[in-house]
């Protein structure tokens, strides 16, 4: 045994070095956009204008670009309004859709009824559809609702919350159903013998165990709602309601906004989901798996 190890050690070390070299290089490549965003964002207008030095770090680190990207300038609108709109949209939509998903997941995993196995894929289908195929009726429904009932959903944050909540149900239901399915039925059965009913089982057994599940679902919903663009551009018709991704796209799309401000704005837009990712990365990974691996 010892001889075999000794014989394999030398080539092994070179392979390890090569392995790390490849990994470090790959990591470097993945970080290129971050590097570019950072150095360009911290440059002054004057420095950023010289596009031939775009790869060179700034001479002087300045926060001017971030200030303009956030507050806007006389000839451009900043991210500020969009940021708060997104916050107002993402918090209720995330919480409500997670709660609904938890209840649905509980019923579909522990209270299976006839047809539940057929119903489940029908619910899931909703998360794969291209939303283009429901946009026209969605806009029409919102407009008709406002005309006949006065409930304003079109071009309001409430309308965005409703859309994100409903179209979030399939994925939240899926994750919770898989999460609860992993909790042994014996536990539920034991409590039933003790006289627990539908509500008390959820309240005293499953819900207390759900915190990791909620974290996973909420991270998933938070990032995907924060990053959404399609519902925003379709349902929000005024800068007063634009979510942040739209504000960013407007900044980047207008020809007179310089690169340093565009990059600063992109960075600011990416910060909340990145923070979530950095601090809750472990759960994020679990969320990815739960949402995708098991159908």
């Amino acid at each position: 045994m010892t001889t075999a190890v000794a014989a394999r050690r030398a080539p092994l070390r070179w392979r390890r070095i090569l392995l790390y070299a490849v990994l470090v290089m790959a990591a470097g490549l993945y970080l290129v956009p971050v590097y570019v965003l950072l150095i360009t964002g911290f440059k002054s207008q004057q420095e950023a204008l010289n596009i031939f030095t775009m790869w060179t770090p700034p001479n002087v680190i300045g926060f001017h670009s971030f200030q303009v990207a956030w507050f806007g300038a006389p000839d451009s609108v900043g991210l500020e309004q969009g940021f708060w709109n997104s916050v107002q949209m993402v918090i209720p939509a995330t919480l409500i859709s997670s709660m609904i998903g938890s209840v649905n997941g509980y019923i579909l995993s522990k209270w299976k009824f006839r047809g539940a196995n057929l119903l489940f894929p029908l619910i899931l289908f909703g998360m794969f559809i291209p939303y283009q195929s429901i946009l026209i009726p969605l806009v029409q429904t919102y407009q008709l609702l406002e005309r006949y009932t006065g409930i304003a959903l079109y071009s309001t944050i409430a309308g965005l919350v409703v859309a994100h909540t409903i179209y979030g149900i399939p994925i939240t239901t899926l994750i919770f159903r898989n999460y609860y399915a992993a909790i042994p039925n014996e536990m539920v059965e034991a409590s039933r013998i003790d006289g627990a009913n539908f509500f008390s089982i959820y309240r005293y057994i499953l819900f207390p165990l759900s915190v990791p599940g909620f974290v996973v679902v909420m991270i998933w919903q938070f990032t995907s709602i924060w990053n959404d663009f399609l519902f925003g551009i379709t349902l929000a018709n005024t800068p007063k309601v634009y979510p942040i991704t739209l504000s960013l796209n407007n900044i980047a799309g207008s020809f007179h906004v310089p690169w340093n401000i565009q990059m600063a704005a992109a960075l600011l837009t990416a910060v909340p989901p990145l923070l979530v990712y950095i601090f809750l990365g472990r759960y994020f990974m679990r969320g990815l798996m739960a949402g995708s691996l098991k159908g």
Partner: peptide
């Protein structure tokens, strides 16, 4: 978590009409 949910409900009831 239940506090958060209550908050969510309150936020969702922001008057829209």
């Amino acid at each position: 978590v239940s506090l958060l949910l209550v908050l969510a409900l309150v936020l969702s009831m922001v008057p829209s009409a």
